[in-house]
Amino acid sequence: MNLAKFARRGYVSSATPLEAAPAFSKALGGKVNVFIKRDDLLPGTSGGNKTRKLDFSMADAIEKGADTIITCGAVQSNHCRLTLAWAVKEGMDCHLILEERVKGSYKPEGSGNNFLFNILGVKSTTVVSGGSDMMGEMEKL
Score class of each variant (00 low, 15 high):
2 N>P: 11
2 N>R: 12
4 A>T: 09
4 A>N: 15
6 F>R: 14
6 F>D: 12
7 A>C: 15
8 R>Y: 13
9 R>A: 14
12 V>F: 14
17 P>T: 08
18 L>W: 11
18 L>H: 06
22 P>A: 02
22 P>C: 03
22 P>Q: 04
23 A>Y: 09
24 F>E: 13
26 K>R: 14
30 G>L: 01
31 K>G: 15
36 I>E: 07
38 R>C: 04
38 R>M: 13
39 D>Y: 01
42 L>A: 04
43 P>V: 12
44 G>P: 13
49 N>T: 01
49 N>R: 01
50 K>D: 10
51 T>C: 12
51 T>R: 11
53 K>D: 02
53 K>S: 08
56 F>H: 04
56 F>C: 03
57 S>M: 01
58 M>D: 12
58 M>Q: 08
59 A>S: 11
60 D>E: 11
60 D>I: 01
61 A>I: 02
61 A>S: 05
62 I>G: 07
62 I>C: 05
62 I>L: 13
62 I>T: 07
64 K>H: 15
65 G>E: 02
68 T>C: 15
68 T>R: 15
68 T>L: 11
69 I>Q: 10
69 I>V: 15
70 I>N: 09
71 T>R: 01
71 T>Y: 01
73 G>L: 08
73 G>T: 02
74 A>V: 11
75 V>E: 00
76 Q>N: 03
77 S>D: 07
78 N>V: 04
80 C>Y: 03
83 T>M: 10
87 A>D: 05
88 V>Q: 12
93 D>Q: 08
94 C>G: 08
96 L>Y: 07
96 L>P: 06
97 I>F: 04
99 E>A: 05
100 E>F: 09
101 R>A: 12
103 K>H: 11
103 K>T: 10
104 G>A: 00
106 Y>L: 12
107 K>V: 07
110 G>P: 04
110 G>N: 11
115 F>K: 00
115 F>L: 00
116 L>M: 03
119 I>V: 10
120 L>P: 00
120 L>K: 00
124 S>L: 00
125 T>D: 06
125 T>S: 06
126 T>G: 00
127 V>F: 06
128 V>S: 05
128 V>M: 13
128 V>I: 05
131 G>H: 08
132 S>T: 08
132 S>F: 01
133 D>N: 04
138 M>H: 09
140 K>H: 12
140 K>Q: 06
140 K>L: 08
141 L>T: 12
